[in-house]
Design a protein around this nucleic acid. Sequence first.
RNA 1: GGCGGCAUAGCCAAGUGGUAAGGCAAGGGUCUGCAAAACCCUCAUACCCCGGUUCGAAUCCGGGUGCUGCCUCCA
Length: 493
Amino acid sequence: MRIHDTLTRKTVELVPRELGKISMYVCGVTPYASAHIGHARTAVAYDLLKRYLQHAGYVVTHVSNYTDIDDKIIRRAQEQGVTPLELSARYIGEYLEDMAALNVLSPDITPRVSESIQDIIELIGRITTNGYAYVSSDGVYFSVRKFGRYGRLSGRSVDEMRSGARVEVNEAKEDPLDFALWKFAKPGEISWDSPWGKGRPGWHIECSAMSLRHLGAGFDIHGGGEDLIFPHHENEIAQSEAALEGQQFVRYWVHSGMVNMGAEKMSKSLGNVMTVRELLEQYPGQVVRLYLLQTSYNKPLKFSISGFGQSFTNYERMAEFEVFLQGLTEEPHGSVKAEFESTCSSFLGEFDASLADNLNTSRALAAVYEFMTRVRRTASERSLGGSEASRVLEVFRSTLWVLGLDQTSDYMKHKSSLLAGKRHALVAVAAEVEAAVDDSRSASDLLDAIIMKRQIVREAGQYDIADQIRERLRGVGIALEDGIDGVRYRIRG
RNA sequence: GGCGGCAUAGCCAAGUGGUAAGGCAAGGGUCUGCAAAACCCUCAUACCCCGGUUCGAAUCCGGGUGCUGCCUCCA
């Protein structure tokens, strides 16, 4: 496949370090608050990359960390009267629930900073031994000017940045661009022993330590949101390659685009966030995921709530398509016609080609929609055989898996939970139309009874009454559809 | 101030030299007792503006305009 590499600023063929295997490290979250849609976007992007690579036959090792020790966590924990690790553990738990709802597969390894201190200390030791670091009054610092390639990833020069003067003023640093590898503990702060004194890791060093620990030098893909390019990933390269003495740290740098809220970037520090939890109250996780997949992973995405409505409609279309096929596969018969098989195989080819093209999900989704239309068209021209439906289902589901949109059962769950919320209204409707059912039954039973009542009057030719019942249900947000194979319903509002 | 990115229909969005994918919305039709669903048709002479290169440009070059990211914690 081809992937956009930030370092070379080119979309290039992905050639793994080891044939048939991909090693991938993705910068995870700092768990001090609920995850927002931007975090979800990044997680979904790399989950898609992993799924596609697995689909393409690679054995993927996916590592994603939790930065569970950091200034913000420490401050928040103090405010709330809990320990930093209690606070981060709570938000890690929340994050896992959110990601599960989005059908994000668990990374193979999820290291935490608090559990990687020895690796971090060893790495700082190597950097120090190689002469790239110095001990100052409040910590151990990396000496940026000693690393000649500094600035290559983010496309800036050390001189430009010095004159930029927006760097933190800190007397303890020899140069304003230097960054902390190890911060000495202030009284009462969480800390670990080290050869330089009690303290904790600086930001940046943990990702180098954890990625090298689990994947080794020269691993394939290092990913994260594009806001991490500078300084986080720039610093990771500097300190890692300083420690590795000439060996390459990472083969390909991949960055996912930001989610903007209105005009601005969504960010915890700006306070303009839409959390994943808030969205999940309104939409199934699969709808949120589909919304995120509509746009290329590396372009900015402007958050808009109306977009979720569009995604819901599309997701419903996919789920209903699957229901339609399942109905046909119950009686397997006939063979798959050659022309029909070519519809399936050309879809698979286009789908693969789309994702191989730097994960072009817009194009891949277009292929999915077209495939659904083609199959439906065939079904409207002649009857589809059960074997054909099985073949379509197999093809369709395999592509949905790659996109992570295979949880079509979420649609049914969402539908029944919305229906359950209408029980009270349905009691009233049932009484009005004199459906034979008692008030204590479930929403689903009440609806069935109302539908049965309507079928009776329909069969009697009393269409005006049947239409009144349908209208009445529509009034409570339930739309009936009379099909050849029975009555179906959809929840509309 | 420095370094990037983006600008395609009412909305979302692909497309990096060969004459505008796909979805949502909208309108018309087939089917249906009626409706819905499904299917069919229609829906940007046109890709922010102005120049240039080319037989040919949304795509390349130059100049504008607008929005935006990073340079400070950030997915």
